[in-house]
Simulated assay, not measured.
Amino acid sequence: MTLKEIQKIIKDFEESELTELSLEFDDVKLRLSKNKVSEVISNKTEEIKENIKENNDVKPEINLPLEEIKSPLVGTFYSANNPEGEPFIKVGQKIKKGDSLCIIEAMKIMNEITSSVDGIVEKIHYENGEVVGFNDVVVTVKKDGI
């Protein structure tokens, strides 16, 4: 297809009442549109389709409210009863109201911090041995919707 033929098709299209025209032959694809909104929507639709194809493993997620559990005192954060022990909680773990979350040591006294809500541990903000301030967020919990 020559440039003159393409220009003729474009001119005829502009003079016609058609709003869209798509032609495909050999290795040439020609798409004409007088409706800019349609073109934008079409492009966005194609982008969305491509994203869906690339992200087939995407799982729907419900955005439940987050609860910040704060430290009632200044001290040292510990995730378990002893250095070799299993941590009380892990990210993604389901917890119940009253479950132990961590220990905060203040003046050689071990203070157990418990959950005030049922939910799933979203984030643990401190590592073993780090200093926690008064009212600092220690753990963020995604509250159960039940």
Score class of each variant (00 low, 15 high):
103 I>A: 03
63 N>I: 13
130 E>S: 11
136 D>N: 08
130 E>Q: 14
145 G>L: 15
103 I>C: 02
116 S>I: 13
28 V>E: 11
9 I>H: 08
48 I>K: 02
92 G>M: 01
26 D>S: 15
26 D>V: 05
74 V>L: 11
14 E>L: 12
80 A>E: 10
88 F>V: 00
105 E>V: 08
65 P>L: 08
84 E>F: 07
56 N>T: 15
113 I>S: 06
100 S>K: 12
16 S>R: 04
13 F>R: 01
121 V>M: 07
70 K>T: 06
86 E>F: 05
130 E>G: 04
7 Q>P: 12
2 T>M: 10
101 L>S: 01
5 E>A: 08
91 V>H: 01
25 F>P: 05
62 I>E: 08
39 E>M: 09
88 F>G: 00
82 N>S: 15
114 T>R: 10
65 P>Y: 07
20 E>A: 10
55 N>I: 07
138 V>E: 05
107 M>Q: 01
82 N>T: 14
75 G>E: 03
29 K>S: 11
55 N>W: 11
128 N>Q: 07
27 D>G: 08
36 K>T: 07
145 G>N: 13
78 Y>Q: 02
24 E>G: 11
50 E>M: 10
48 I>L: 15
16 S>P: 02
13 F>T: 04
104 I>C: 02
59 K>V: 14
118 D>A: 02
66 L>I: 14
61 E>H: 09
93 Q>H: 02
10 I>G: 02
120 I>G: 04
97 K>N: 13
19 T>G: 07
49 K>E: 12
54 E>Y: 09
143 K>Q: 09
73 L>C: 03
6 I>S: 10
21 L>Q: 01
104 I>Y: 05
112 E>K: 07
115 S>E: 02
119 G>L: 02
79 S>Q: 06
69 I>G: 00
60 P>W: 08
145 G>P: 08
61 E>Q: 09
136 D>P: 02
79 S>A: 08
